[in-house]
Design a protein around this nucleic acid. Structure first.
Lengths: 363, 363
DNA sequence: CTGTTAGCGCGTTCAG
DNA sequence: CTGAACGCGCTAACAG
């Protein structure tokens, strides 16, 4: 027999469909005895509302889409986690779309048919040029994550990347380092985010009377560990070796540390390394990784708030929310009291870190 | 004005709704000139099919749900990635549900209303007891990931955890280690997966005439880096210190390495560490992490195949697919030719690893 | 090859 | 407070 519908429940309970609907949705007023009869009928039949029908009728799905380049990058996994947690109290489901940083897939995400299944889009673009973003026609509300052409008429949530990069650079300078490299510029035109981090880096060096040595700018194709390792290898092959490196994300930094170790260098004594993103991995790596970390929870909250307000007021002016960031100083830029690993003097005990709460097994 | 519908397109093109539907869905036969007129009208109006209506009518959504404990655990992020990639050629969208390993959320996932929005469920349970799993009433097809009570009448895909744990243990024994610890048993009854790994560990020691020293079994509440670090700290506080550790997942292993370093121990010279899962992080950590790795892509393919066949034949007998695993020997159980990090002799260059392909920036 | 029509299951008007 | 009827937008019979 087919799945029971509202009418089946109504028949069994001896009431109208409207009443059943009222009970199920908590709408209208229903007397206690009636409610109980209906609830009994629902239980007896194992009735479950048909979401497709409900969505059609209501015109919304209570689902929002989060589109990110890839979940295997811990930053995005952590962001997705934050988004899901922030969405729960608003009774929203988050559908995660992985674009692979591929322009075609970004287009599909951004105005494809799939998007129709959700009430809003939170989009972290990678390949899509700003002008295409600006020309969007789709009516599903969208919030952009990260900066893209300032004239883009969309809501967005950003961090102050220039200031954050400056903070990291100041920190390295404060350590007394003078040959400071950067890993993260991109060969064929940087992503706007990278560009801001690069500008922050350069401006800070300049403010201290040091100009950025072009030989110490290592570009990367993408932002994975392997790119960071390759970039560090190139840096170390030169005659002027850096004594500190600012990496535009933590994955690059972790790869850079790996490469430094392979060259027999000690981090931070021989070379200090700082990353960006504040992924949990960096709190446990050897050495633990200094980083600039945006408040992911705040990003998630802000994005959902913007989406919600857009639902009410579809035509308000685009708004930009800037979220806080902070510097986490750990061993990879520590003061270097110990020459070898494992002295325990410089490292905070990981268990006291507050990270890693929750539970999970694998496989 | 409201969103255009099929009838608006039909009116503009001067044809019937059925013809428009045929053009949009590629069903039926339509003459070229008619098709062009319809396509022009679609473009002119910016028509997009309403998915809710389509889902209601078709009775399916082309969406499947993947429910995992948490995306911040790299194993699950990588699994989700594999699932999304495997789903694409089948034109399936993957909705990721994060249960947080929380029983209530697992129940919601597993028979909640949200599930109605998808055609199938791929479920990696953590908190849910086997008997509750067995009593499932919901009709949405489900595939289980990992082993749970062998009598559970559901399709599932597993790896041979006993054999995989044995492989890891053999490897440590082959290194000449004799005080071999395990991190991963759970205090209040192990998860079936952990239990199998523990059994594989014990049986292998026994096969070599070594019994598992209870003092060398370190239990954990969950499977995060912090748990691994805490467990290692306990192990190292004892009078009989282990010279090797088998961790039930890579995150535990990474935490254990961190703690070993904090105690001034060298990995692998003083203590060898092997993990489980084959997450990419382990290919770049210091030292690089030996691990037993299931084939995640194969897991994803198998799960989707099972789901697809279940759609055709809803009442066939439950099937179990066992997926391959392999041992990746890296520096954390290396032969220990160099006493210090960074000799470069033992480590494969990360860039030659084949990991980390693809592209992504962050924040 | 194309047009007409009847629901998919639900939420919500309107009368009572 | 309840009951009957309508329609959300689309697809699939069934004509023509």
């Amino acid at each position: 027999m087919r799945r029971p519908g509202l009418r089946d429940v109504a028949a069994l309970a001896g009431v109208s469909v409207k009443t059943v609907s009222n009970v199920v949705n908590g709408t209208g007023r229903v007397t206690a005895p009636t409610r109980e009869r209906v609830e009994a009928a629902v239980a007896a039949l194992g009735y479950r509302p048909n979401m497709a029908a409900r969505n059609l009728r209501r015109g919304r799905t209570e689902v929002i889409t989060l589109a990110v380049p890839e979940l295997t990058a811990p930053y995005f996994a952590e962001l997705a986690d934050a988004m899901i947690r922030a969405a729960e109290p608003r009774s929203l489901t988050v559908l995660i779309d992985q674009t692979q940083g591929n322009l075609e897939r970004e287009r599909l995400t951004f105005q494809g048919e799939r998007l129709q299944q959700s009430d809003g889009l939170i989009f972290s673009p990678l390949a899509m040029p700003a002008d295409e973003l600006a020309r969007r026609t789709d009516t599903v509300p969208m919030v952009l994550l990260g900066e893209h052409a300032p004239d883009c008429p969309h809501d967005r949530v950003v961090i102050d990347n220039h200031a954050a990069a400056a903070l990291a650079t100041e920190h390295l300078i404060g350590l007394g380092r003078r040959a400071i490299a950067a890993i993260g510029p991109q060969p064929r035109g940087s992503h706007p985010t990278s560009q801001l981090r690069l500008d922050g880096f350069r401006d800070t060096l300049a403010a201290h009377g040091m100009s950025a040595d072009p030989a110490l700018l290592a570009s990367v194709e993408s932002f994975h560990r392997a790119d960071g390792a390759a970039a560090m290898n190139r840096l170390l092959a030169q005659h002027r070796r850096p004594d500190a490196v600012f990496c535009f994300n933590d994955l690059l930094a972790l790869g850079a540390v790996r490469a430094a170790h392979d060259h027999g260098l000690r981090v931070p004594q021989d070379i200090a390394v700082i990353g960006f993103d504040g992924i949990e991995e960096g709190a446990f790596s050897t050495p633990t990784l200094s980083t600039v970390t945006p408040d992911k929870r705040q990003i998630a909250e802000a994005a959902l708030d913007l989406l919600a307000s857009r639902t009410d007021d579809a035509d308000g002016p685009p708004r930009t929310v800037t979220v806080a960031h902070e510097l986490a100083v750990r061993d990879s830029t520590g003061t270097g009291t110990g020459g070898r690993l494992g002295t325990g003097t410089g490292g905070r005990p990981p268990t006291a870190d507050g990270v890693g709460a929750g539970r999970a097994a694998s496989g």
